[in-house]
């Protein structure tokens, strides 16, 4: 059986992810406890008297010990009900569901644009190593890495929305009525995010392909009479998939952090904005659930990259 060790290997990775998830949820809860003030203060604002605070805290079960509140919330998440928002009283899940689609659309479109483009640029730069093209790519990626995404986003707004007036400054999905609208609405957020995630992917792809092209087997392939394209696509690339998949996963996971900033600049109604608002009002159930969703997305990406790397490597596939 060649399958069973593979399944157990993948099983171990997934198991490790679940343990990580548990720790992350504990850590988020713990950090939230350290924050100054609580939701009762946020709601009552100026009219907070000690009596009113105590009453509201009791009503919201905030007077229970921290571990009890954590357990309650955790069992809730496991049974599919992460509770209600302390501010709006709406079910947390409903609030997130409304925004999650928007955020996933933004992240998905960015991935769709950036991954193929990054692979192409990385591979071409590796093949044309040392040429003007390669150096241009290298300088451009270093430049973009060193500029924070909010700066790119702000510059894009100033150029395309304020000066040229080609695109709307704010991205609201409600304005979308046609494909052209979709392009107009998403162009700037996707552009800002793509710049930010692509740079790292291009650099890693270039490095991994160069490594594979410098091996004896790539030389042996050239000496067999393989064309340059065949050497890259059939001989070098399969051996570079592992590192490339990991670079893609890591880059796309930084996308999650990037989304927060970009959603706010473009006033885009996504999950990240929801989380920022929830932190401001100390709406813990909402903060925790969104954090766990981000964590799941991250683990999903990294675990997928691991599994892809395992499947791409015959040494791990056939022991």
């Amino acid at each position: 059986m060649t399958l069973s060790p593979l399944v157990s290997l993948i099983g171990r990775r997934v198991g490790a992810s679940l343990v990580t998830l548990l720790f992350v949820s504990l850590a988020v809860f713990g950090i939230a406890q350290l924050m100054e003030g609580d939701v009762a203060e946020a709601i009552l604002g100026q009219s907070a008297t000690p009596e009113a605070l105590a009453g509201l805290r009791a009503a919201m079960h905030l007077d229970q010990p921290a571990w009890e509140r954590y357990l309650e919330w955790a069992t809730g998440v496991l049974t599919g009900d992460p509770g209600r928002s302390l501010i709006t009283g709406l079910p947390v899940w409903e609030m997130i569901a409304a925004r999650l689609g928007n955020s996933l659309t933004l992240a998905g479109l960015t991935a769709l644009v950036s991954v193929p483009l990054a692979l192409l640029l990385g591979i071409v730069a590796a093949v044309k190593r040392g040429t003007a093209f390669d150096r241009t790519i290298s300088i451009a990626t270093i430049g973009i890495v060193s500029v924070p995404e909010f700066l790119i986003a702000t510059l894009a707004v100033m150029l395309f929305a304020v000066t040229l007036r080609w695109l709307p400054a704010l991205s609201s999905t409600r304005d979308v009525h046609s494909t052209w609208d979709l392009v107009r609405v998403f162009a700037m957020p996707v552009f800002s995010l793509a710049c930010f995630v692509m740079a790292q992917m291009v650099r890693m792809t270039r490095a991994a392909v160069i490594d594979a092209l410098d091996t004896s087997y790539a030389e042996a392939a050239r000496l067999k009479g393989c064309s340059p394209a065949r050497v890259v696509l059939r001989h070098a690339l399969p051996n570079a998939i592992g590192p490339i998949a990991n670079a893609i996963a890591l880059s796309l996971s930084t996308l999650l952090g990037g989304v927060i900033v970009v959603e706010i600049i473009f006033n885009y109604p996504g999950v990240a904005r929801l989380m920022v608002d929830a932190v401001a009002t100390r709406d813990l159930p909402l903060v925790q659930t969104v954090a766990v969703i981000f964590c799941i997305a991250y683990l999903l990406l990294v675990t997928t990259a691991d599994v892809v790397a395992i499947l791409a490597n015959p040494r791990l596939r056939h022991r």
Binding site: Y217, E219, A220, G225, S227, N239, N313, P314
Partner: peptide, 24 residues
């Protein structure tokens, strides 16, 4: 050269362990 390499002249490398592609 491509049409000659592997057809008219063939090459056996020093370390076959390194000259075989591990993923094919």
């Amino acid at each position: 050269l491509r049409s000659i390499r592997g057809r008219t002249v063939a090459y056996v490398a020093q370390s076959a362990a390194a000259a075989f592609n591990p993923s094919l």
